[in-house]
Amino acid sequence: MQVLKEGVLPKGRALVPGCGRAYAVVAFAQHGYTATGLDLSETAVEEAQQVLEENRASLQGEATVALGNFFETTGTFDVIYDYTFLCALHPDARAAWAQQHKKLLAPGGTLFTMIYPITEKTGGPPFQMSIELVQSLLEPLGFKASRLEMLPDELCHPGREGKTAIGLWQLSEQ
């Protein structure tokens, strides 16, 4: 993850909701974070546990994965990473997604969104995303983007070129 290499995210606790096989959890822990992955799928959590074990020697921080519901999660996190989580949620859950991020983000923390898929499509999941959609969810709650741009093609997963944007969001002082 290029943003981790840039060192622009606050250090501390990281949450990866909808973590799947926990590759992002591993990446955060390799950069010294106490990283927690969360998924609703028992199969995903089992596979994530295996990925964590395979990468344990490379971790500079802590990494755990738990079976659980993002919307019932408590605590605070310095970084929350959303990539292919919002697009997997039914559009009716989007407002609750934004509210939960506001509850979970620690003061001075950063919500790191990879906005995907930016494309014309109907139905889902994945549901169509856009920069404007994510702005409309977060800005009314006091989130302000410090970085909001299309991800350069060379940093995208193959096949996702031109369809992925990055957003780094902080809560404004209220």
Rank of each mutant, 00 (worst) to 15 (best):
V3M: 02
V3Y: 00
L4A: 05
K5D: 12
V8H: 00
L9V: 02
K11S: 09
G12K: 02
G12A: 01
A14K: 12
L15D: 10
V16L: 11
P17W: 06
C19Y: 05
A22I: 00
A22H: 03
Y23E: 11
V25P: 09
F28S: 06
A29Y: 11
Q30F: 09
Q30P: 07
G32C: 09
Y33Q: 05
T34W: 04
T36N: 01
G37A: 00
G37N: 03
G37F: 01
S41Q: 08
S41I: 01
E42T: 11
E42V: 07
A44L: 07
A44Q: 15
A44R: 12
E46M: 06
E47N: 12
Q49F: 10
Q50S: 04
L52G: 02
E53D: 09
E53Y: 12
E53C: 07
N55S: 10
N55E: 09
L59Y: 12
L59S: 08
E62M: 07
A63I: 04
G68I: 05
F71C: 05
E72P: 03
G75D: 04
T76R: 08
F77R: 14
V79F: 02
I80E: 14
D82V: 02
T84I: 12
F85D: 09
L86Y: 15
C87R: 13
C87W: 08
C87Q: 15
A88N: 15
D92W: 01
A93Y: 13
A93D: 08
R94V: 01
R94K: 05
W97C: 02
A98M: 12
Q99I: 05
Q100C: 01
L105E: 07
G108L: 04
G108R: 06
G109F: 03
T113L: 11
T113D: 10
I115N: 15
I115R: 15
Y116P: 01
P117I: 01
T119Y: 09
K121W: 09
G123K: 06
G124M: 08
P125N: 15
P126G: 13
Q128R: 14
Q128L: 06
E132F: 01
E132Y: 01
Q135G: 03
L137P: 07
L138P: 06
E139S: 13
L141W: 12
L141F: 14
G142R: 15
F143Y: 13
R147S: 09
M150V: 01
L151E: 07
L151Y: 03
P152H: 00
L155R: 13
L155V: 03
C156E: 03
C156N: 14
R160I: 00
R160Q: 10
G162R: 02
G162F: 00
T164L: 12
T164H: 15
A165Y: 09
G167I: 00
L168V: 11
Q170S: 13
L171P: 14
E173I: 15
Q174L: 14
